[in-house]
Amino acid sequence: MSWMDDGGFEMQAFTAQDGSPMARMSFRTSTGQYYFNFTKTEVQRVRRECGRILKEMEADK
């Protein structure tokens, strides 16, 4: 089972105190647990970069 399947990676949407939409990404590893908070714009940038990387990986086949 991969670390993503067994709960080592998780993303959740939440609302910040000022009412803006946010996302929290958490990684659990053998050395600890790490949290990253992103704005909607930052999530969109990550999504764009993931799409770019996936295209590169497909082209390398």
Score class of each variant (00 low, 15 high):
Ser30Asn: 13
Lys55Trp: 09
Asp6Asn: 15
Tyr34His: 11
Asn37Tyr: 10
Trp3Ser: 15
Met4Phe: 12
Gln33Ala: 11
Thr39Asp: 00
Phe9Cys: 07
Tyr34Phe: 15
Met57His: 09
Met11Lys: 08
Gly8Lys: 05
Arg45His: 12
Arg24Ile: 03
Gly19Val: 03
Val46Gly: 01
Leu54Arg: 12
Glu58Gln: 14
Asp6Ala: 11
Ala23Lys: 00
Gln12Lys: 13
Thr15Asp: 02
Gly32Ala: 06
Glu42Leu: 03
Phe38Cys: 02
Arg45Asp: 08
Arg45Gln: 13
Met57Ser: 08
Gly32Ile: 05
Met22Ser: 04
Met57Glu: 10
Ala59Met: 05
Lys40Asp: 07
Pro21Cys: 00
Met22Pro: 00
Glu49Asp: 13
Ser20Met: 08
Glu42His: 05
Gly19Phe: 01
Ser30Phe: 08
Thr41Trp: 02
Gln12Ile: 13
Ser30Gly: 11
Lys55Tyr: 11
Gly7Asp: 09
Gly8Arg: 04
Arg28Ile: 04
Ala23Leu: 07
Lys55Met: 12
Gln12Asp: 11
Asp18Trp: 06
Glu10Phe: 07
Glu10Tyr: 10
Thr39Ile: 01
Arg48Asn: 15
Asn37Glu: 14
Gln33Trp: 04
Arg48Ile: 08
Gln12His: 09
Met11Ala: 10
Gln33Asn: 11
Ser2Leu: 10
Tyr34Met: 11
Asp60Met: 11
Thr41Phe: 07
Thr15Gln: 02
Thr15Ile: 14
Glu10Val: 06
Lys40Thr: 13
Glu58Gly: 06
Tyr35His: 15
Glu58Pro: 00
Gln17Phe: 10
Asp6Gly: 09
Ile53Trp: 06
Thr39Ala: 02
Glu10Asn: 12
Phe27Ala: 00
Thr29Ser: 15
Met25Glu: 05
Asp60Glu: 14
Phe36Cys: 07
Ala16Pro: 02
Val46Glu: 01
